[in-house]
């Protein structure tokens, strides 16, 4: 089994260099510095709180999210927003080694 097969995700986040990150969304690739990534993480956490999600569903059913110091605007529907939240969460998740 080839474990090196590259999987293409609809939304993806990668570390390019020491302090540059790349966010791939449905229609664009955005380069982010670390503070910009932290700001995006905070915005996404706020938008995916249950009360915010209910508000979004009750109104437009999509969000327009600024990224990279307002240089980019991302259009996301609810599943894409949740997908972005999961992507960012797993990027920040601390993996702890487990002895088997």
């Amino acid at each position: 089994m080839n474990v090196d097969v590259s999987v293409e995700y609809e939304i993806d986040l990668k570390e390019i260099t020491f302090c540059k990150y790349e966010l791939k969304t449905v229609n664009k690739r955005i380069t982010l510095s670390f503070p910009q990534l932290l700001q995006l993480r905070n915005n996404v956490i706020q938008l995916t709180k249950p009360e915010s999600l209910y508000d979004i569903i009750d109104t437009e059913n999509f969000v327009l999210l600024f990224a990279a110091d307002k240089q980019h605007l991302i259009y996301l529907d609810i599943p894409q927003l949740l997908n972005l939240r999961n992507t960012i969460d797993s990027f920040f998740y601390s993996f702890k080694s487990v002895s088997i």
Partner: peptide, 18 residues
């Protein structure tokens, strides 16, 4: 904390939110 962001942050992101 064994993630890419450890190089940028000393504190844990979950703790930072709190």
């Amino acid at each position: 904390m064994k993630t890419a962001i450890r190089k940028q942050m000393t504190i844990n992101p979950v703790v930072m939110d709190l």
